[in-house]
Design a protein around this nucleic acid. Structure first.
Length: 307
DNA sequence: CATTAGCCCTGAGAGC
DNA sequence: TGCTCTCAGGGCTAAT
């Protein structure tokens, strides 16, 4: 469930090992993930130097010096796993000692999900300095594509995205305009990547909680004062989550194997029946966090605080 | 046009 | 212990 904070964290991990480096080999281990890999993927990126990274919503973009950009979406269960070429096949089973490479990067904390390391590694590349980077995605909801760098934002998957929530264009006025007249529940509206890019089930729940807005409230009632609360709430939860390295839940793990820690700070997500952190408790008339299903997905909220 | 349901896929966890 | 069942959900396409 990589959402914006997890994707941002993964992108930073990739930047640390890939930016400024040349790709000396690449391979795919099957013909497709969500969609077929782009024609000639390995050939087109081999020999290229990665000049920079950016994130757009839940997409990672790596610019190459070939005038093409590599697009990566982690889907539901995608992970990027980086390790030195010379790393033992199963380092977590060996002695506990850390070993660092020449740049001081610590490779000792491989995640148990990497056992065995090549399972579900559908795409991998190697850099000139001996780092191997694999795209592991058991469910294969993720995807990889290549496009001209000059036309990044025209890519079919990026063209319809709404504003970046952490950039200046995401204002109460802009959010209000996007929600005007819409008859869907706020839960669905914020999951719509065309309204704002990068939110998923977790951060929609957490942002709505912080803004004291019910996930069931219809979107067209938000413009105005509620939008003015919601924009800073979305920003704050995303920034805090990025600061914590994202949330580690089931599948997600950072490229360097360290775990994100934001899941320890969830107020409502996956906390059905537990006390609402901002309510006075049962004596104050709060029955705790409630779980409902909206369009087939779990929604968590406090009915007392969120209206 | 706006909205919703179905679908892809595998692993984790619950229940028996 | 081991089997089966349910659930997790991002984002597409098809249907309403």
């Amino acid at each position: 469930m990589p959402e914006l904070p997890e994707v941002e964290t993964v992108m930073r991990g990739l930047r640390a090992v890939l930016e400024g480096r040349r790709i000396v080999a690449a391979e795919t281990t099957r013909p497709d993930m969500r969609w077929p890999f782009p024609e000639g993927l390995a050939r087109r990126i081999t020999g290229a130097t990665v000049t920079g990274f950016r994130r757009r919503g839940k997409y990672i973009l790596a610019r190459l010096d070939t005038a093409e950009s590599l697009l990566i979406h982690l889907g539901m269960s995608g992970r990027m796993v980086a390790r030195p070429e010379a790393a033992p096949a199963v380092p977590w089973m060996g002695p506990q000692g850390a070993y660092s490479d020449a740049r001081g990067h610590n490779w000792s904390r491989m995640h148990p999900h990497d056992n065995p390391p090549d399972t579900h590694e559908h795409f991998r590349l190697r850099t000139e300095d001996g780092t191997r980077i694999g795209f592991v995605d058991p469910r294969r909801f993720g995807c990889v594509d290549l496009m001209p760098t000059a036309a990044e934002d025209a890519h079919k998957l990026l063209a319809g995205l709404g504003p970046e929530p952490l950039e200046a264009g995401f204002t109460p006025a802009a959010l209000s305009a996007a929600l005007e007249g819409r008859l869907v529940p706020m839960k669905a509206a914020l999951l719509d990547q065309g309204v704002v890019a990068g939110l998923g089930n977790i951060y929609v729940a957490e942002a709505l909680f912080r803004a004291r807005i019910s996930p069931r409230r219809l979107a067209h009632t938000i413009p105005g004062a509620r939008a003015a609360r919601l924009v800073p709430a979305i920003r704050a939860v995303l920034e805090e989550a990025i600061g914590a390295g994202g949330s580690s839940l089931r599948d997600y793990v950072r490229a360097d194997g360290e775990l994100g820690r934001f899941q320890d700070r969830f107020a409502v997500y996956d906390r059905e029946g537990q006390p609402c952190p901002s309510c006075p408790g049962a004596a104050g008339g709060c029955a705790g966090v409630v779980r409902i299903v909206q369009s087939g997905r779990s929604t968590f909220y406090c009915p007392r605080l969120q209206r």
